[in-house]
Design a protein around this nucleic acid. Structure first.
Lengths: 212, 212
DNA sequence: GTCTATAACGCGATAGAC
DNA sequence: GTCTATCGCGTTATAGAC
């Protein structure tokens, strides 16, 4: 195996690891941790099963690696929320970034949802170490905006929860949306308009006509 | 096994089936379909594994039975949405019913979420047969309210999605909420206030001070 | 580094005594 | 109806040839 003491992971090693992780994301997000098998991951990656286990220490190692890598990408839209920007614009832009992410990275969203749904057994330390401080920081920012009279009175924590819930819904519950709306249409353009109107109303914004 | 031709399932049979289904709900909602084992269900039910299989034809039979039974309860809050009631009151009351349900039946919510997340492989027929018609019916009701000028212009389908997403979030992502808010507090009272304010703003309601 | 073959284990389901 | 014991299968992981 590639030892932790190995100084130089070769180009082919890094490439194969990426191929395996991408295949694993596909399989884990579709079937959950327990429902995924190394056979499926190996087939998806175009590699043999023992070869998978040459690059990773086991099924759980792959899963944890995926979740850890996901963390940074996942927090990024919230990191970008600017304390010095216009409060209502910042929040509505955050909604848009989250919805875009749920369209472009639905597998990541479902991987994350699967893990939380089962009690976050493997990602809990990462959440406490990275998500919690960021969440608290941004809640303080929003509370400051409210205190300064730049926003109407609202609950920062539950506002963020509402944004997460509504935007990730379109990735996590895609199967249900397809049954109810039909498989043809991508619901996200209309979802975008609806969410901008809803959060805009909460933030006491007049109708947003365009946003960037 | 209890044949389909058996005329009279005894009292003890019905009781044991209920005990097994309750245990299975606990285990399936916590670990997902594939992650759950008959051993866990048997231990939770206080019965032996073969005895479980005396009452059900297999693991999948238990799972499908649970999902089917859940369907009715799950749709009930939406069924109650009254076309002849006050539009804004009806929708805000629906939000409250859904939030109450996510507090009182979190296991059912997670069972459902798990199934949808994996593409609804077993519940899809039920969704098409029961959820879809109800969803369409109530969307038409809301669209009628909008057309009649009783509500501001809004998207009925995505309004309902937003209600589902925000209310079920507190059951499905409970692990995340506990990490971010602390395990002591039940977030739902403040969630209730936040959601009433948010959807109230969208529906152009003044601040709701109390609701029944 | 990558493969074939297989060991070790856990799981769903069945057989058969009581 | 309920149990103990066990079968057969699928899955993770390893051994060893190349």
């Amino acid at each position: 195996m590639p030892e932790s003491t190995a100084k130089k992971p070769s180009r082919i090693q890094r490439r194969n690891r990426r191929v395996i992780l991408d295949a694993a994301l596909e399989v884990f997000s579709k079937h959950g941790y327990r429902g995924a098998t190394l056979d499926q991951i190996a087939a998806e990656a175009g590699l043999s099963k023992p070869n998978i286990l040459y690059y990773f220490n086991g099924k759980e190692d792959i899963h944890v690696t995926l979740l850890s890598q996901l963390m940074e990408t996942w927090l990024d839209p919230l990191v970008e929320l600017d304390p010095d920007g216009d409060p209502r614009r910042e929040i509505l832009d955050y909604v848009e970034r989250k919805l875009t992410m749920s369209r472009e990275l639905p597998r990541e969203s479902r991987l994350f949802a699967n893990e939380i749904l089962q009690g976050a057994p493997r990602i809990e330390p990462e959440l406490k170490r990275h998500l919690k401080p960021l969440f608290d920081e941004k809640c303080t920012v929003i509370a400051g905006w409210v205190a300064a009279g730049k926003l109407p009175p609202l609950d920062p924590q539950h506002l963020i929860f509402s944004i997460w819930a509504t935007t990730q819904h379109y990735a996590d519950f895609e199967a249900q949306a397809q049954i109810l709306l039909g498989p043809e249409t991508d619901p996200r353009p209309r979802a975008q308009a609806h969410l901008q109107a809803m959060f805009g109303a909460l933030l006491d914004l007049p109708e947003p006509s365009a946003n960037g």
